[in-house]
């Protein structure tokens, strides 16, 4: 039952059970791992770690739900090192669809980083890079912001990009973001309450009951599109939401509007304004007041 772990020298582990073998994955993610031949100055370090399905809860201790919400299939993680002793970690997540992978990418990317031409979308942040291509979202982590690490991050990411043969399309809902909102660097695509809740805690109650959602942020202002089956459902949901927010004592200044929508202020004193538009509910959220919320809504039109 117990013994020493030679690698650690002093450990008394309880044996790790092998557990049931995971179902055979559809894609061999090993094919996307850059080898030493694909990179200059960086080589794989150690064996890749693979987790599929529910095993993600082992890899991400206590935090796998958001990936499961988007539709997780498997992840492969591989470390790299260079001669100077710096390290990188590459994580390749296969999601259930390009839409799921795109959503997970928008969850992971802050919108504050630098857009880089890798995959179908990529953002380089202080010490890591997230990228999306087809069913895959991948992350390269450098552990520091040194030029050497950042160059390594880019090199590994480009090598992964080159090995993923097929792309995919962005969710059609993202195309319904209007004008400048569609080009905003900070966008989100969400398919459940966690994705939405992680944008703003105002949405914790889960009262929107959407099929999918798109959001964009510009200068602290947010525009949200919640998608429903049809106009009948969006109008029905809007009425339900209005009723619940009206009854919510934490909401201030709640008022119905002539366009059938409503407005109010959250417990954090952000102003929100919402209305139905076809099979969507459109919602503006801003900390700049009612006039700004009205301006955001006007940008959507009809």
């Amino acid at each position: 039952m117990s013994g020493f772990l030679p690698a650690l020298g002093i450990a008394i582990p309880i044996a790790f059970g092998a557990g049931p073998a995971p179902a055979a994955p559809a894609v061999d993610l090993n094919a996307f791992l850059p080898s030493a031949r694909d990179l200059v100055g960086w080589t794989p370090s150690g064996e890749p770690q693979h987790y599929a399905g529910e095993e993600l809860y082992t890899y991400i201790d206590g935090g796998a739900e958001i990936y499961q919400e988007y539709g997780f299939k498997q992840v492969l993680a591989q470390d790299y090192k260079n001669a100077a002793g710096r390290g990188l970690t590459l994580e390749i997540y296969e999601m259930k669809s390009p839409e799921a992978a795109f959503g997970a990418f928008t969850f992971k990317a802050s919108g504050k980083g630098q857009s880089v031409p890798i995959g179908q979308a990529a953002e380089l942040e202080d010490y890591y890079l997230n990228a999306w291509k087809g069913d895959v979202v991948f992350t390269v982590i450098g552990f520091d912001d040194s030029p050497e690490s950042l160059a390594g991050i880019r090199a590994v990411a480009k090598a992964v990009d080159a090995k993923i043969p097929v792309g995919g399309t962005r969710p059609a809902l993202m195309g319904r973001l209007p004008g400048a909102w569609a080009r905003a660097p900070h966008i989100k695509y969400f398919t459940g309450v966690l994705g939405l809740f992680n944008i703003d805690a105002f949405f914790k109650g889960g009262i929107f009951k959407f099929k999918a959602g798109a959001a964009a942020e510009m200068n602290g202002d947010w525009l949200f599109l919640f998608q429903y089956s049809d106009e009948t459902e969006s109008l029905q949901r809007l009425a339900e939401i209005q009723k619940k927010l009206f009854a919510d004592v934490s909401i201030k200044g709640f008022a119905a509007l002539p366009d059938g929508g409503f407005e109010g202020r959250t417990s954090k004193d952000k102003t929100f304004r919402a209305k139905a538009a076809g099979n969507l509910i459109v919602l503006a959220l801003t900390n700049k007041g009612a006039a700004d919320a009205e301006k955001i809504m006007a940008s959507f039109g009809r």
Partner: peptide, 22 residues
């Protein structure tokens, strides 16, 4: 990976890893 195993080793204390699959 996070450097804690090295501390355990250097400080000569036990590290008990328990499988949650059992």
């Amino acid at each position: 990976g996070c450097g804690l195993a090295a501390v355990v080793k250097e400080e000569d204390v036990l590290l008990t890893l328990v499988s949650n699959k059992e």
